[in-house]
Nucleic acid binder design. Structure first.
Lengths: 218, 218
DNA sequence: TTTAACTATATTGTCGACAATTTCATAGCT
DNA sequence: AGCTATGAAATTGTCGACAATATAGTTAAA
């Protein structure tokens, strides 16, 4: 169903995914220091794989590292949120525009079907699926852009940081009904191959989302 | 003068910078395999630092890696160039818009001064400075956006790949005179705090640049 | 001849130990 | 008291060796 990018195969891969999850979910506190030896005992792997995992986390902007000093989990700030969403708005808006041009008819049909399923679930009260549904929706449009760099930046880079803000500010999938309507309009624009409109609607959709989060942060 | 992001301190840092340079400049052929043991003897460091360097190169999209198989230098393709410049156009256009809002008056003044110096050098025939001048110009605007994510994406990620295309297609700083005029207009828009115009001009500037490279690639 | 299995080789992944650097505490000096 | 210097402890960086995996070559069977 969902394409999880690439299943982790090596030990460093798995540790990276674990660590990333623990950071995003707040198991490892924002701003805390990452001790290599400590983590190596916690996750039962050698320091080498911890180091490799930390390096990848740094590339994701989830941790910051100083030479000969160590790595710390990033801190969540209002300015950071604004900057992050500025970039996200531009990139995902662009993704929507490209998706309108590059997605196949079948992919669009599948996207519409996904939205219908999502709608049914929301209506019948399965609200715990809404987060996953939202993620899947955005993910498909991103991939639909067919632009390698864009996909990589959004899924590897920005996405997890966005989720970290949402999780740690305690937004369990907000704005369900309104967001759903916005999703529908975006898909409609893509189906009509109207890239400009799709971009505009996506940017607005993300802007609303930002405002919603920002209110909790203040 | 120029802020080289961060001076490499550790051995892995230096090796990373060296490797990156050799890849961008074509010393290491595009598409070639990177043998860890071979590189460790070539650069006189242990395999561990080579591995760390390769990991960072992967984060820059300069090499691609498969688990248990190895890393290869990316290949340069017309589609890759188009996709790269699509992203670059959007991001650097955004940078120009943000720079118009966020650069200090002094930073703008310095940028104008830089452009004047550049102009003098071009006029007196010091054409070997044009590449560095162009880079410096774009770099200052990117930093002037004051957006951490944007800066990181452009300077760590996209920038070196762009340079790799330019170098390996043998463009030794093309479009000097015309590009200079475009630069002047962009700075003017920034000085006038006209973000929309700055973005539009920057996007057009980069689009021209892409077309110029694309011609050589076909 | 082609295919399949197996062995040998080479390459990547992981580990523990050592070296270099930073950090913290203590002592000495003005 | 405050500041600097010195040294010990802890942490990160680097290295070589071993384990796991993939690749290539060879042999054997259909």
């Amino acid at each position: 169903m969902n394409t999880p990018a690439e299943t982790p195969v090596t030990s460093a891969d798995k540790t990276f995914v674990l660590l990333r999850s623990d950071i995003v979910e707040g198991v490892i506190t924002a701003g805390s220091k990452l001790s290599e030896t400590e983590l190596s005992t916690t996750y039962s792997v050698s320091r080498a794989v911890i180091r490799e995992a930390i390096n990848r986390l740094e590339a994701c902007h989830l941790v910051e590292r100083k030479a000969n000093v160590g790595a710390r989990v990033v801190t969540l700030t209002p300015e950071g949120l604004v900057q992050l969403y500025q970039v996200r708005e531009a990139l995902e808006g662009m993704a929507a525009r490209l998706a309108a041009a590059n997605m196949t008819d079948q992919e669009i049909a599948e996207l519409q079907e996904l939205l219908s399923e999502h709608f049914e679930e929301v209506k019948t009260g399965h609200s715990y699926y809404q987060e996953a549904g939202d993620v899947d929706f955005h993910y498909r449009i991103i991939v639909g852009s067919k632009n390698t760099h864009l996909i990589s930046m959004l899924t590897n880079g920005i996405y997890h940081l966005v989720r970290m803000y949402r999780v740690q500010l305690g937004m369990a999938g907000p704005r369900v009904s309104t967001a759903f309507g916005e999703h529908k309009h975006i898909v409609q624009a893509i189906a009509n191959r109207d890239g400009e409109l799709a971009e505009m609607l996506m940017r607005r959709h993300i802007l609303y989302s930002k405002n919603n989060i920002e209110n909790k942060l203040l």
